[in-house]
Nucleic acid binder design. Structure first.
Lengths: 258, 258
DNA sequence: AACCGTTTTTTTGTTAACAATCTTTGAGAG
DNA sequence: CTCTCAAAGATTGTTAACAAAAAAACGGTT
């Protein structure tokens, strides 16, 4: 996990929490301050408002959130256990920058987990679950039509968590939450284009679930993840090669001009 | 997660860390104190030396580990995120006591994860991996023969993590680590007998992996987990029924004698 | 202008003290 | 003897201050 890129924290200054959609499924009542900070930062990462490498300075966060330093440290600590934040001793906390190998592992884990989730959904989704999924997909389509990128991202990731909810296994859901948030970082870092790829994947997954077609559901969710993965470009991996070749070229020109 | 049972922390006073076997796969070099405390407590839970409901008082832990309170609090905080410890505001931290529903979810999650791990192992385990697994199974047998219960528990849980290592997916491994530790709590709470059940399950799983028989590997690991689950008794759930029936009986006797 | 060394400032890490809450103990009444 | 209440003690939660490390700024030299 590398890539130190200085970016500002202004995305945190706007309240990130839309009332109708909260990704992190923690209690929404009276919260510990550190919990709130944790959730807000986590959501900001999830929604790609906080980019990989962003420095999360404690004092700055204290001002943004209006809390004391220990509260911030607690939230950052927790985010670091979930590998969303990288705390470097004596240097500060930074939004994590997953390596290509991290990305591979995360997608692999997602695939394993979501395969199981798809099967479970087929086995135990009831009519109200299906209805709920249809409504979600409709919301995605609407957000896409209206060009609300942030909302699309939010709903798109949340779709997978809605599937996980149906399984009623909170541990699997929580694990997927982490993986989904980490996926956001990966897309921030390595995404080539915007997602014009997955337009109706979700709808087709829901259809397979509604028809109790386990095989199709699994196939579609895996295809969806594969398509997402293949839309990434780990060209950053070649940067050193590029710099080297550029340097060699420059050196070559120098010798020619002298 | 309930069940407040006061038990002592003396198991933490002995150094839990056997040099040849460390369950938690964090770096073994220079560690942050809170990391060490976290690992030691985590391992103590894993090895069933710390029982569910045990109160983990901050001051007591400070004395045991020879560190300051903030260090302890950090470790406890982390353990609570992994649901191994239950922090109740103003009351203190307690080793978690999973409910029967928790147990169901944990085993379900384990099954999903370990199914995938088994498949991966079949697909990518090399000769040295197989050899390593054989050695591990031999160590288990030896520990069982010598009656070293603690060692048996340690090795038995570690077997699953060794399988996870072969997949080279650190996120899946880490998730399984948590599930395995949580399983220890469940067995502590709901285990009927000692495990005379799973004597050669591991060996048979290794055999299936060695023979590249994916179907058998999956079947055997699932059977292993099922057998483990069925060895549990959620009789605690029936306590109220027992008390009621006892009370009714007593009442019946009272009416007869009068 | 670039580089290096020193000083200052900023930020992170740690500790101690105080505040708040809960539990235990002891005294008094019935 | 039992129960209730108040006080004391213990524990958890929070805050402020100090220590340590890194980054930035400044001044001098080449």
């Amino acid at each position: 996990m590398e890539k130190r890129q200085e970016r500002d924290l202004s995305p945190l200054k706007q309240s990130a929490r839309s009332p109708d959609m909260v990704i992190k499924k923690e209690t929404m009542g009276k919260q510990e301050p550190s919990e709130r900070v944790y959730l807000d930062i986590s959501n900001a990462i999830f929604e790609q408002r906080l980019k990989p490498g962003t420095k999360l300075g404690e004092q700055m966060l204290c001002e943004i959130f209006g809390v004391n330093r220990p509260v911030i440290r607690r939230a950052l600590m927790r985010l670091s256990y979930e590998t969303l934040v990288d705390i470097r001793p004596n240097r500060g906390a930074f939004v994590a920058s997953p390596s290509p190998e991290d990305a591979r592992q995360i997608f692999e884990a997602r695939r394993a987990v979501e395969e199981w989730i798809a099967r479970q959904c087929v086995a135990c989704a009831g009519p109200s679950d299906i209805e709920h999924l249809h409504a979600h997909v409709a919301m995605e389509a609407e957000a896409r039509r209206s060009g609300d990128r942030l909302h699309v991202i939010r709903l798109s990731g949340a779709f997978h968590l809605e599937l996980a909810n149906i399984t009623k296994n909170s541990r699997m859901r929580r694990f997927l939450e982490e993986l989904v948030a980490q996926t956001s970082l990966i897309i921030s870092l390595y995404g080539k284009n915007d997602e014009s790829l997955c337009d109706d994947d979700h709808a087709r997954i829901v259809e397979a679930i509604a028809q109790k077609d386990s095989e199709s559901a699994v196939k579609r969710i895996c295809a969806h993840l594969d398509s997402c993965l293949s839309s990434l470009s780990f060209a950053e991996e070649n940067d050193s090669t590029d710099l080297r070749s550029i340097f060699m070229d420059q050196h070559h020109h120098n010798t020619l001009s002298s």
